[in-house]
């Protein structure tokens, strides 16, 4: 923002006499207190809900009247073959989609590099403005668009395919479980690619132009300039985002999968977050809580691991 922050403030001596500062420090705290309470209620209090994982809890019956069962719900994950199968299936989906997400996280990098190569400024602006729109609509809306475009009976894509004679009858893109991982990642990037590229575009704009001019004088080709100047310039940004997504490996979020799930594709689309929702609404609260709890713990552990890695490699923490 142009004005140096933090350091400047710190060098300024407090102007208030000591007595008034002591009074003020409590006054400030009291002003913040209502907001801290809200934070506590909505972010910290839910952790107390983990206790339900250790009871045979049924919604509607008070916890004090339900039997304590210790680690029963955690043990069923490994001891009950059906349950183990379910958990493994869901883990497979989670790992598959998160891995696809990690591998394809170079897409916005490529997008940004190629977009800066476009010569006409108006076209860059045009592309950038329009491709960020999908980021601002909900997954329900994305699904509604997908529904209109791809549904079997009246979707424009199937209509065109049938008219062109590519297929005999409409292909049910939305209800098929065979390509769902790829379909999900494709929709994800349709929604996020333009937006995800913004940070990289900024990183590229921040690269010293003299580097390019010098390389030009030395006769470097465009690809050599990209490889030796642009790519090193945006690697730090890429690295931070990559580490953050490693920290979020088990948190796919559920909105996208919730919107796109149906009876046909359920087996392949259920990631952990969605699975937890589905079992809870099949009224198995304690098991859902147990899975939720394990997921939160694994997720925090991954984040710390990513942070440690970041400190080791680039001497800077990501959180």
């Amino acid at each position: 923002m142009g004005v140096p922050s933090g350091k400047l403030l710190r060098s300024v001596k407090p102007v208030h006499p000591t007595g008034r500062r002591i009074q003020n420090k409590h006054k400030l705290f009291l002003m913040a207190l209502p907001f801290l309470l809200i934070t506590f209620i909505f972010y910290y209090l839910p952790i107390s809900g983990w206790i339900y994982a250790f009871y045979d809890f049924i919604p509607g019956i008070p916890l004090s009247d339900t039997p304590y069962v210790g680690l029963k719900w955690f043990r069923t994950m490994v001891e009950n073959p059906t349950q183990t199968g379910e958990v493994l299936r869901v883990l497979k989906n989670t790992v598959a989609m998160s891995s696809l997400g990690l591998v394809t996280s170079v897409f916005p990098v490529i997008f940004a590099i190629l977009l800066t190569e476009v010569k006409a400024g108006w076209y860059r602006k045009f592309v950038q403005t329009l491709t960020t729109i999908p980021n601002f609509i909900s997954w329900i809306l994305v699904y509604a668009l997908a529904f209109s475009l791809f549904s079997v009976d009246n979707g424009v894509v199937n209509n065109i395919l049938v008219q062109l004679g590519v297929v005999d009858e409409g292909f049910n893109f939305l209800a098929s479980s065979s390509h769902i991982w790829v379909t999900m990642i494709a929709w994800y990037w349709w929604k996020s690619l333009g937006w995800g590229a913004i940070l990289y575009l900024a990183a590229i704009a921040g690269i010293d132009q003299e580097l390019y001019e010098a390389a030009e004088v030395d006769g470097a080709s465009r690809f050599r300039k990209i490889w030796h100047i642009t790519v090193p310039g945006i690697i730090p940004t890429f690295f931070v985002l990559l580490l953050l997504s490693i920290g979020n490996f088990v948190n796919n979020g559920m909105e996208q999968y919730f919107a796109f799930q149906n009876a046909m594709n359920k087996d392949a689309i259920e990631v952990l977050d969605l699975y937890v929702y589905n079992i809870a609404f099949a009224n198995n609260f304690p098991f859902a809580t147990a899975v939720s709890m394990l997921k939160s713990i694994v997720s925090v552990a991954l984040l710390f691991a990513a942070n440690t890695l970041s400190k080791a490699v680039r001497d800077e923490s990501i959180i």
Binding site: L36, G49, W50, A288, T289, S292, M293, I319
Partner: peptide, 27 residues
């Protein structure tokens, strides 16, 4: 000069990185 500023600030910010989970939140 706020009393406990660092602790309060950090405890608000750290909530970006963890959640108790869907079901505990619902309960």
């Amino acid at each position: 000069e706020m009393w406990g500023r660092q602790i309060w600030y950090r405890s608000v910010v750290v909530t970006m990185y963890f959640s108790a989970g869907l079901i505990p939140w619902y309960i």
